[in-house]
Design a protein around this nucleic acid. Structure first.
Lengths: 188, 188
DNA sequence: AGTCCACCTTACTCGAAGTAGGTTACTTCC
DNA sequence: GGAAGTAACCTACTTCGAGTAAGGTGGACT
């Protein structure tokens, strides 16, 4: 059910996708969808949750057992950009999640936060404990995690339009930028 | 007209905002809106374009005449996060622009690219010419610009939920992360 | 057999996007 | 001055899709 909905949302876009079509393609009638998901937004939300969960699973696995922070970053990003390429539909949902509004939007933030929390924790692990504690209290760790996610998502959208770039190259760019910072590029 | 539409979209969200309401609040009838903007999407697009143009103006001005790359970055980010705080409505549109789909979405990418181009050029200016040329050819400059924009947008959304953070603090976080990179935080 | 209940459907309402066709008021030309 | 044309605008519709109400079908339990 969610799979079909994912496909329809991805190919038509949220607004243009009709519940009638989804119901028909699933092979049930519309009230059934409402029974399970309450509303169109609810259905989209369920799809996005699913997609995000998968993304989280994939990256968490990739990151596990990296000896250094830089290596963890590289592996995580590789997994992320690979996901973008291989699961276009799922990614398309995550990308357009901003269409949601109101209650659904708040629920979504929760889901999203699981992702950033993962990253924030991870960064904490690779940081000197005292520094980490301070960074956490000031919110810097959270900020950094948000930053990583936002930057990479944007980078992913950008890279979709450039067929010459493989996930490996994009991941390498991202590691360079993120790890070394702009200071490594701009020197004046 | 665009001002009113901006307000309605911002307070109701794209889907929930009705053309009837906008028309009424503007003081004209619905067909007039369609005359000028062709469709609901067209209207939203016009609003977003306006908002982005303003954002670009503000940041470009802030960045001008900075002696170093780091300073330019700081000033630009300050302007950006200030904009978020002072022009909530406009920002809300930019934030939700992903709702657009199809032709409108493509037009939007153009608008957005003006922003990233600005940043890419700027970074080029602060970089050793030879390095800059190489970075430009490989697409690294573009990638970096996308990254900056994405990261900061996400950071802005995050900071909206934390009332204890001023634009100055958030900008400072962003500068730290962007300029120095994660290597400065994570040390293992 | 009869009753109940979970499950699913058809067939509706209602609201909002988009449009057709008419009206007013103003300009232009005879 | 008045007829013809036109720009700007409105009222009143059509259409489409989200969400719902009320009813049917088959199995389980008494």
């Amino acid at each position: 059910m969610i799979q079909v909905a994912e496909a329809v949302f991805a190919e038509r876009g949220y607004t243009a996708a009709s519940m009638d079509e989804i119901a028909e393609r699933v092979g049930v009638s519309k009230p059934m969808l409402y029974e399970y998901f309450n509303s169109k937004e609810g259905l989209l939300l369920a799809c996005i949750r699913e997609a995000r969960a998968e993304l989280r699973r994939v990256t968490a696995q990739a990151v596990a057992n990296s000896p250094t922070g830089e290596e963890a970053l590289r592996q995580g990003l590789l997994a992320f950009f690979g996901f973008i390429r291989d699961r276009r539909q799922a990614w398309s949902l995550v990308r357009h999640e901003a269409s949601l509004v109101g209650t659904a939007a708040e629920e979504l933030e929760t889901t999203r936060q699981q992702q950033t929390d993962l990253i924030a924790t991870l960064m904490g692990d690779f940081t000197d404990p005292e520094t980490a504690r301070m960074a956490e209290e000031s919110g810097l760790l959270q900020a950094a995690a948000e930053f990583v996610v936002g930057g990479c998502e944007r980078l992913a959208i950008w890279s979709e339009q450039r067929s010459d770039l493989t996930p490996e190259i994009v991941a390498e760019y991202a590691v360079n930028l993120l790890w070394g910072g702009l200071a490594h590029i701009a020197d004046r």
